[in-house]
Nucleic acid binder design. Structure first.
Lengths: 237, 237
DNA sequence: ACAATAGTGTCTTTGAGACACTATGTG
DNA sequence: CACATAGTGTCTCAAAGACACTATTGT
């Protein structure tokens, strides 16, 4: 049999293949706290539990896994997330009551303001402060996925400026430093933090300033591809 | 409907779900060159091409994705790989002629000697020098998976001693340094390399020595969990 | 003027790079 | 002994930590 005959006769459905879904842990920073976007499940299994935004691949419209993620996130936030990164896949026979299931888990960041209104308008989606999720009933193994995504983001704060994607398009250095401090749960030396970011030349000085109280701070925006940059040396751990 | 009724009626097969497979890029170091284990496909599609060891999840015996990886690797190598790490998942409608397909890709390391005999006995499996794979006909997107796994391993050589898992259980520091040099494709300063490894206290001095020509080198073995350790500072890139 | 916050100067400390040196085996 | 390879001493250099200092706003 040649390949085209093989493919003509091939029927995927004749195999019992695991369920496959895509989920994302979307973080933002609001009022000096990390938040995760959760969606209330209104279907079995785990009906009524909070879960990560995600779901099944739509083979007719998604050409790759990231299409699925972005589509699902856009449904809930109304916008395209500026940072999306694949984290890890979780698969096993115990994580979903329907049977053997695999989920490809992504991590994403967005500014709270960029999707505040839309999220408020979506009845089943809500931002939850990260520190509160232990008390929530979470579907499947989503609590684990959130914790591992959080840990990964903490690591990123030590050697990249990826966390900046959780801030508005224009932000100040003190804001960014504060966010890193929240992520690594430790105060940072202002000087060290500014020095490394300045040397990396990742930010564009917009020339604008923001003042609340005290001296106004310069507003910066991220250069393209800032997510790829990694410092050779980590901040102290 | 309550959850148990829902689950009773639930039939996964009524959905058209993507194909899902697990693949691994198994590296070793032999004669000062990196090698990857490849398997000759004897089924459509891409029959006759070389492919990564891997395949479908067996829902009756695998409890999680890593079970599948280790099972498949053991089939080809005869032993359990000392280092297995999930890399990334690839999914899309264009990577497999059978349709929308997802593969969870792992990276693994093993000592050449640990599985030399068994690999030779498995008719469809062979070690290929990494530099030769461009000339090979590789199945699916496996060339991409190999290249991305290689790049990840290169990064690991800059901030961890993970590459040591590609060496025999007892190895010398010059051997390890040479391996890192192969991975990052650059000579390293002997002193810097030894200093950081000594400070990290990751190795056990076996007290034994190996001599070929010149002064005999001390033989070391890895402490457990050496894979978790990361240096705060990368080697030069 | 003073409170508050932004941003800098500069010294210390850590750990990598460079490279010459010493040490220990073999024929 | 010479040769080869293992392993060390020590200086330089880059970048983070510490912390006191100056700068710019509002009241």
């Amino acid at each position: 049999m040649n390949e085209s005959d093989f493919l003509k006769n091939y029927d995927k459905r004749s195999f019992d293949t695991p369920l496959i879904t895509v989920d994302s842990v979307l973080f933002t920073c609001h009022e000096q706290r990390l938040h995760v976007l959760l969606v209330k499940r209104d279907e079995h299994p785990d009906k009524g539990c909070w879960s990560l935004p995600g779901g099944f691949i739509d083979q007719t419209i998604d050409t790759c896994l990231e299409d699925t993620v972005r589509r699902k996130l856009k449904q809930k936030t109304g916008v395209d997330a500026p940072y999306v990164e694949q984290l890890k896949s979780y698969g096993g026979n115990a994580r979903d009551k329907r049977g053997w299931a695999v989920t490809v888990c992504y991590s994403a960041l967005i500014a709270f303001q960029a999707c505040e209104a839309h999220v408020a308008s979506v009845s089943d989606a809500r931002w939850h402060p990260l520190d509160d999720i232990a008390e929530l009933a979470l579907a499947f193994d989503h609590e684990t996925l959130i914790m591992e995504a959080r840990e990964r983001l903490r690591q990123k704060a030590l050697y990249s400026i990826v966390p900046a994607y959780a801030l508005p398009e224009q932000f100040t250095l003190p804001e960014l430093q504060k966010l890193h401090e929240i992520l690594i749960d430790k105060p940072l030396q202002k000087k060290s933090f500014r020095r490394r970011i300045e040397q990396a030349e990742l930010l564009i000085d917009t020339g604008l300033k923001r003042s609340e109280s005290g001296r106004p701070a310069s507003l910066y925006s991220l250069k393209a591809d800032s997510a790829e940059f990694t410092f050779l040396r980590n901040l102290e751990n």
